[in-house]
């Protein structure tokens, strides 16, 4: 019996630059087949903002005091439709005034519509980027909602996978997931979601979103690997914490909360009042976020004074491969073929 292990990820919001390379890496790896045009299994949004799908934090799902909570079914438009463009007319056949733009008129929402809008007021506005993928929760609301048992959590790495042969497209899972990380494929009539790059992990290759991140933002590894960075950041230093722990699904993607430059008083002089309101961060990460930020600031000050800091050196990760725990293989060196498509073969 393989002992139960959990692959986890830590995403450092102080290093994320919102460039969406993770989003494109995932798109070109997985969601480029029929019916998946509008799917982004990895997204990056600017907080504060509506995020994607639009207003997902108000769409319910997850658990309260152990009890399942009803959720709203997100629409394709709320995820952001995949606009097509009138390239043929505008570039090759157009008369002078054929403007190249989305077919179907002016869009008013898109996957990254509120990029860089932020919150608060100048000069004390605030914003940070937050990447999201399926959290492969320890208590997955999607798995418990599916009447056909078509979703299962793999023993060897805790990855939550939909078996598309069993899925009838009921989408109770899409409603029940409090993070709204599940998409519906209108062509195959099945629900589809992030599979934590299981075929890559099985070959020792990091996930596309973590390996291709130019900001070196994502730590990847097993939660129980004590000398790995994830265990240290989550349990020892407690600077990596779950997003919306109150949803009670015990997500396995953790976030290092964002620091920010000082805000200003009336005359424009810097004061040491949090530019990012602490109550806003509490609403995202819970009460643990305050002490985490204090620790980050203290450790940075230690380094500035010339001292040592294991926490800072871990977050810096001077040797890039230290980010990825046991997954350090370059995909090009993997066998020329990755066998089964995970979705419909397991279980």
């Amino acid at each position: 019996m393989t002992d139960k292990r959990q692959v986890a990820m830590v995403i450092d919001l102080n290093k994320c630059i919102g460039c969406q390379t993770c989003t494109i890496a995932c798109k070109t790896q997985w969601t480029n087949r029929e019916g998946m045009e509008g799917m982004w299994w990895n997204t990056v949004s600017t907080s504060p903002g509506e995020g994607t799908p639009k207003g997902w934090e108000k769409m319910g799902g997850g658990f309260r005091k152990g009890k399942a909570q009803p959720g709203k079914l997100p629409k394709q438009g709320e995820f952001g439709t995949a606009w097509n463009f009138n390239v043929e007319e505008a570039l090759f056949q157009g008369d002078k005034h054929d403007t190249l733009g989305p077919i179907g008129g002016d869009p008013n929402w898109g996957t990254n519509w509120d990029e860089d809008i932020g919150g608060g007021e100048y000069p004390n506005s605030f914003q940070f980027y937050i990447p999201r993928i399926c959290n492969h929760c320890t208590k997955p609301a999607c798995m418990e909602a599916c009447p056909r048992g078509a979703i299962f959590k793999r023993e060897e790495d805790g990855i939550v996978v939909i078996n598309e042969d069993h899925c009838r497209g009921f989408r109770f899972c899409q409603e029940a997931c409090p993070y709204k990380e599940i998409y519906y494929n209108t062509v195959t009539g099945t629900s589809q979601k992030c599979i934590m790059c299981a075929p890559r992990l099985e070959e020792g290759v990091p996930t596309a979103c973590s390996r291709q991140c130019p900001g070196r933002v994502r730590f990847l590894g097993f939660l129980d690997d004590e000398d790995g960075p994830i265990h240290k950041l989550v349990y020892k230093y407690k600077v990596a914490m779950a997003l919306h722990p109150e949803y009670e699904t015990e997500p396995n993607v953790f976030y290092i909360p964002p620091l920010a430059p000082p805000s200003f008083d009336e005359e424009g002089n810097p004061i040491d009042e949090d530019r990012i309101p602490m109550d806003y961060l509490d609403s995202l990460f819970g009460p643990a976020v305050g002490p985490a930020i204090d620790l980050l600031k203290a450790e940075k000050a230690k380094k500035k004074a010339g001292g040592e800091s294991d926490l800072m050196d871990t977050l810096i990760a001077r040797n890039w491969l230290d980010l990825f725990g046991p997954f350090t293989t370059n995909p090009k060196d993997v066998a020329k073929t990755l066998e089964e498509r995970v979705q419909n073969r397991q279980g």
Binding site: A68, A145, F172, E175
Partner: peptide
Amino acid sequence: LQPTEYIQVSWE
């Protein structure tokens, strides 16, 4: 008789 708690709760 709905097979999962989620379905019961969301259709109550």
